[in-house]
């Protein structure tokens, strides 16, 4: 464990806590894409299949449980909670899951470290995580405005990915034969997807104006 990875995990944890708090306290999910949240729940479900078979560390297991619980409870809130679900903008959040799930599944069948169910599911979850934010970014473009909690949520998610890249660089130089191209490339793609959002977020923060994404 290095400082970059710990900071990355904590930032990731913060992003889901910010989101849960937003939904729980103001009983609203306006501006949040349910599609993205469902994809994240699928990412964690397919990545943490080994939660009960391969024990790595108490930290690892606890964090996996937190991510699974938070992602599924966010989906539950947005789908089932009688007040929250009313603020869900299903007419704007129309990104089709399958356009992301199928290509990631096919890619994982061809590009993986070992052709076993767990390994293919793990690789699928990596590719899916890289693109899971797309429905959220599309929704933000459509609604044109972004309330600061949603902005913080996407910002924290991007920061977690950037910290993970620093973690991989650190591990590459400090651990012999620590090489994971699949992880690195999908992680890089994911971080680049945030880059444009960061650009607008930083500019709005610098000019102290409300964050507006271009059409």
């Amino acid at each position: 464990m290095n400082i970059f990875r710990l900071a990355g995990d904590m930032t990731h944890l913060m992003s889901v806590i910010v989101l849960l708090l937003k939904i729980h306290t103001i009983k609203s999910c306006a501006g949040i894409s349910l599609k993205t949240q469902e994809l994240y729940a699928l990412v964690f479900a397919t990545r943490y299949l080994d939660i009960f078979t391969d024990f790595i560390s108490l930290y690892n297991t606890i964090m996996k449980l937190i991510f699974l619980a938070s992602s599924f409870s966010i989906v539950w809130y947005m789908r089932q909670h009688k007040i929250v679900r009313r603020s869900y903008d299903k007419d704007q959040d129309t990104f089709r899951h399958l356009f992301l799930i199928l290509p990631c599944l096919l890619l994982a069948l061809f590009i993986n470290e070992k052709f076993t169910f767990k390994e293919v599911m793990w690789t699928f979850s990596l590719f899916l995580e890289a693109v899971a934010i797309l429905p959220q970014l599309v929704l933000l473009q459509r609604t044109r405005n972004i309330d600061n909690l949603t902005g913080q949520y996407v910002f924290l998610l991007g920061a977690y990915r950037a910290l993970y890249i620093l973690n991989w660089i650190y591990r590459y130089f400090t651990e012999p034969h620590y090489v994971h191209w699949i992880t690195w490339i999908s992680g890089l793609v994911q971080t680049l997807l945030y880059a444009d959002f960061f650009y607008y977020y930083f500019n709005s923060w610098k000019n102290n104006v409300k964050l507006q994404l271009p059409a």
């Binding site: 995990d9 990731h12 391969d54 790595i56 690892n60 964090m63 991510f67 993970y164 973690n167 992880t183």
Partner: peptide
């Protein structure tokens, strides 16, 4: 196992 080492990240 090999899996544990390479899959220690969240």
């Amino acid at each position: 196992s090999r899996r544990e080492i390479s899959k220690d990240e969240l």
